[in-house]
């Protein structure tokens, strides 16, 4: 049985994520896959190393699943994030969302990826042509209601 949320060092399997969802009464499934891009801020990226505070990161993913259910009670969602070294084109994150109608599945999927970038303790170490740098995005604070509202706004745009 594939768990709905996971931090893993192995390759992501989006099909397994979809099969993990209960599709009773479901009319739509969306999948989102985040890939390692070959460029960032004008730099040629060679590879990435992802690090996580695993115990807290899994709780963060669980929290995003709960928040999604609060917002869209008919949505079922699964989120897996890979950590460790990844090459260009590798999948770093996969989200599957199922709902009776397509709108909620698309929205919940977008909400989940925005929230991952806000509150899940995972970090990218970028190795690019000429050097390496830790990427630092948002100061994680799950209780920041403004950030959560912003993610919801993007999801429903």
């Amino acid at each position: 049985m594939v768990s709905l949320t996971a931090i893993t060092t192995t390759m992501l399997d989006t099909g397994a994520l979809v099969r993990a969802l209960d599709t009773t009464g479901i009319g739509a499934v969306t999948t989102f896959i985040g890939l390692v891009r070959d460029h960032n801020l004008g730099r040629r990226v060679l590879h990435l190393e992802y690090e996580a505070y695993e115990a807290l990161a899994v709780k963060g993913l669980d929290r995003i699943v709960s928040e999604s259910l609060e917002q869209w009670p008919s949505v079922r969602i699964a989120i897996h994030h890979r950590i460790g070294r990844m090459e260009i084109g590798d999948a770093s994150v996969a989200i599957a969302a199922a709902s009776p109608h397509r709108g909620e599945a698309f929205a919940a999927s977008r909400y989940a990826i925005e929230r991952i970038k806000q509150i899940v303790p995972i970090w990218k170490h970028e190795y690019f042509e000429g050097g390496d740098v830790w990427i630092e995005g948002a100061t994680a604070d799950p209780d920041n209601t403004e950030a959560r509202a912003q993610a919801l706004k993007i999801a429903c745009a």
């Binding site: 994150v93 806000q118 509150i119 303790p121 990218k124 830790w134 990427i135 994680a140």
Partner: peptide
Amino acid sequence: VAFLPPVSGG
């Protein structure tokens, strides 16, 4: 006790 720099998952 953990200290976490700004996150960058995804």
